[in-house]
Simulated scan of single mutants.
Amino acid sequence: MKEIEDFINKGKIKGAIIIPSNFARKLYRNENSEVQLIIDGSDPTIARTALQSGILISKMYSIKRQEKSLEKKGVNSSTIGSVDMRTKVWFNPNLESTKFTIPALIGLIMQNITVMLTAFTLVREKEKGTIEQLIVTPIKSVELIIGKMIPYILIGSVDFLIALFFGTYWFNVAIQGNILLLIILGLGFVICALAVGMLISSIAKNQLQAMQMSLLFVLPSVLLSGFVFPREAMPFLIKHGGNIIPLTYFINILRGIILKGISIKYLWKDIYILLIFGIILLIIASIRFKKRLD
């Protein structure tokens, strides 16, 4: 059970079948034998498929076993022991789509707001002609970008708390894990998403171009991050294309803490990748802005 729990919390498996030690002995004695199917219910689409498949496999196994015994012994099928599949869905027993959608929706809202806000920051300065005033100041490009981000970090953090409040109390999606850890990681994602916006702002030449580039980043993330469709069912190239989107990892964090109640022990990989994304994006944005100053 410990191994099953670890693998499900890490996202390596979506279900497990537990076969008791007396399984074969009971079947040999023509007694009913029980097996248990445990399913990760955090994704209702996958969970429903696994549930239906598990029940179907159990029934087909029992039918084939009965047919085989009838052929050999010519006995009544009612005297043949069958397999009873007992299912147990973790984290979302009723397979409610709301519990799957709301945590991811919080992350999507946060990404869209923060990227859109910062995508126009430097571009607006260029169009208004105030960028020259920033050029003559002694501050470095990194300091300028961080300074521009600070107000939006505060705005994004407040928006995250508001979205979290409505998701919890309005849609009744209870937070099973550590809420303080969730808030800290949410702040980290806000910074990472703002870095994306800053990079767009440092590349774009005007606000229209910044808007188009923002949409070019935001729209694919809806489909490739696992927000709507399970990433496990995607084609190989498309699935791995979602690996370059920070929202993919934050959705794993949100669903892990809110639905599963897991700790940082199972989330360190997603946290590490988000941290690397944030640092790389800030460095590229700083370098790009410095080149434009030259």
Rank of each mutant, 00 (worst) to 15 (best):
L154Q: 04
M1Y: 14
G226D: 03
T79Y: 10
W170P: 01
T130E: 10
D40N: 15
S77T: 03
V173K: 12
K26I: 05
S62E: 15
D6K: 15
T130C: 04
R25N: 14
V35R: 07
K265W: 00
K59I: 13
I264Y: 04
F165Q: 11
L181S: 11
M110I: 13
I109Q: 11
I150Y: 05
W90Q: 12
G167R: 10
F100W: 09
E132V: 01
E125N: 07
Q111G: 00
G242R: 10
F160T: 12
K12C: 01
V123F: 13
I57V: 14
C192T: 05
I284N: 07
L122S: 06
F160S: 12
D159M: 12
N92C: 02
F227M: 13
S157M: 10
K12L: 09
Y249V: 00
T248I: 04
S225F: 03
I18W: 06
F227W: 08
S21M: 09
I135V: 04
F171T: 04
I257A: 05
I284Y: 14
T168D: 04
S225P: 05
K205T: 11
V89G: 03
I253E: 08
S286H: 07
L95E: 05
R25E: 15
I238Q: 11
E3S: 15
V196E: 06
P235G: 04
I80W: 02
Y152K: 12
A16P: 05
A204L: 13
R292S: 03
Q66R: 12
I251N: 09
K59F: 14
M149H: 07
T130S: 15
F189E: 01
I191Q: 01
I155M: 11
W268K: 09
I135T: 04
E96G: 12
F120L: 12
S42C: 01
N30L: 02
M1G: 13
K68T: 05
D159K: 04
Q176I: 00
L185F: 14
I175D: 05
G177I: 02
I4S: 07
L105W: 01
I273P: 01
T87D: 14
K2W: 13
K260V: 08
N206W: 08
A195S: 15
A174V: 11
S33Q: 04
